[in-house]
């Protein structure tokens, strides 16, 4: 589904991604872990099409297409979804109107007619129930005045609305208490199918107790320095990143 080959990217002339290789197949959940500042969010942003990051080398193939040639809205309609580490507040735009526009555009891309108002409201209600989103949120402006937990839940709700092929969850666990974490993880698990895939970015292994990955990568200093199974998360939990850092610093 997704094939990243030797991807390099910089911001303000500073190289952040220094040759990333990663392949994600349908049905898989990958976790990307790593210390702060190692480039996890940058990778997510580059995949979503953020233009402040300049791709200086490498390729990204998504469902057989050159992803880097697509603008962000096209990537979304093709099936990429980024749950932001810091969801943006949009005063004056209600979640309902926002999702209405997004779902419209996704349907248009698939050659489907827009839903009528009552269909749309029913669809939204269904998805809200699925991710246990508080009903009060829908009349409010997107993320405006939301608590950290509400913002993260709102990301998962949007993901449910758009049913992406590849979801990239950037630190969706950070700032959540254990109950909120369970709700968020639950939502992600419910949305998981054999056809879609997810990349779960996290700093801590805690989330991985609830969203169980098939493969874990450690990103450090713009490179994936280690890849392994579930046991890698437990190892990191025990010993921290120091060993991996030392080893990587020797190699590069």
């Amino acid at each position: 589904m997704l094939k990243i080959t030797n991807l390099k990217a910089e911001v303000d002339g500073k190289e952040i991604l220094r040759g990333i290789n990663l392949e994600v197949k349908p049905g898989e959940i990958h976790a990307i872990m790593g210390p702060n500042g190692s480039g996890k969010s940058t990778l997510a942003s580059v995949l979503a099409g953020r233009d402040i990051f300049k791709v200086t080398g490498g390729k990204v193939e998504f469902k057989g297409k050159n992803l880097l040639n697509l603008i962000p809205e096209e990537r979304s309609r093709e099936g990429i979804f980024l749950a932001f580490q810091y969801p943006v507040e949009i005063p004056g735009v209600s979640i309902t109107n926002f999702m209405r526009a997004a779902v419209d555009e996704h349907r248009k891309h698939k050659g489907l007619d827009p839903m009528n108002a009552s269909q749309f409201l029913r669809y939204m209600k269904e998805k809200k129930a699925l991710v246990e989103l508080d009903a009060k949120l829908e009349g409010r402006a997107v993320n405006e005045g939301f608590s950290g937990g509400e913002k993260k839940k709102n990301e998962i709700f949007q993901m449910a609305m758009l049913e992406p092929d590849l979801a990239i969850l950037d630190e969706t666990d950070s700032g959540l208490d254990i109950d909120a974490l369970k709700v968020v993880a639950n939502g992600v698990n419910k949305l998981k199918t054999k056809e879609n895939a997810a990349i779960v970015i996290t700093h801590y292994q805690r989330l991985l107790d609830y969203i169980v990955p098939d493969i874990i990568h450690v990103l450090y200093n713009g490179r994936i320095v280690k890849t392994g199974g579930r046991e890698l998360a437990l190892e990191l939990e025990k010993y921290g990143y120091d060993e991996i850092k030392k080893e990587a610093d020797k190699r590069f």
């Binding site: 979503a48 603008i71 979304s76 979804f81 943006v88 926002f98 997004a102």
Partner: peptide
């Protein structure tokens, strides 16, 4: 930031 956020949901510029 808001524009980019909206675009990542498929809403054209």
């Amino acid at each position: 930031e808001a524009l980019f956020y909206m675009k990542t949901r498929g809403v054209p510029e």
